[in-house]
Amino acid sequence: MLRLESLTKRYPTGDLALKGVDLEMPKGQVLALIGPSGAGKSTLVRCINRLVEPSSGKVSLDGVEVTSLGGRALRRMRRQMGMIFQEYALVERLTVMENVLSGRLGYVGFWRSYFRRFPQSDIDEAFRLLARVGLEHMVDKRADELSGGQRQRVGIARALIQDPRLLLVDEPTASLDPKTSRQIMRLICELCGERDLPAIINIHDVLLAKMFAQRIVGLQLGEIVYDGSPQGLTDEVLTQIYGEEDWSATVGKGGEEGEAEESAEHHDLPEPDRDRLAGMT
């Protein structure tokens, strides 16, 4: 079980990205984190495995406080949290297999990983996962030869081979077409179901969130403004999260027939991402 207690992040530029977020997540739950660009979704996910160092507050996974760990203990904790990235973040010049095996880096020593001598059990598991995500014929292809959907499948395999207790998913569909987005989301949710794995999926596509998540958390300017079921996302709630807009198409639908409304949903153009801007200055 994952617990966040008054998690706060202030960037060196002074931007307050998270304002005391409290959140509790039971095992096996798929949670979608929605909110406008710059609401702090990315920061929240990265504070959990401390790719971004929180300024204050606590994160604990199954009773172990992540925020107080250092060095080796932090790496041990990170290997129990699989992460799937926006734009895939595969190491482009490594092969599919090497990318998947890189999920085991937290478990093997440096020289073993350097000479690509992973234990046979890891390799078996990698083949199994690649078959599961439908890429068994691509094992020795280089990552930059793959299409977007294929890359994200590799990303999923890399996260799962870590044998994680929690999945952190950061905008998995941001650069995919609508059909592939649905396939990827379905795959992630199926795998979570198979393994009883909790997942936090940070996603800007409200329709997708409603289709696949069991619980929705709306974030606005670093604060939780909605926490409830997908059905509870009404006009008023969406307005509260994103601001004034005609939400009828988004609220009315849900489930698989939402495809036709795709274009209406894409009208809310993302503003410049505040987290990114903060990093650039």
């Binding site: 790496r75 990170r78 973040a89 890189s102 085991r104 952190l168």
Partner: peptide, 8 residues
Amino acid sequence: AVTATGAA
């Protein structure tokens, strides 16, 4: 991404 796997 590689850091997130717990790599040293």
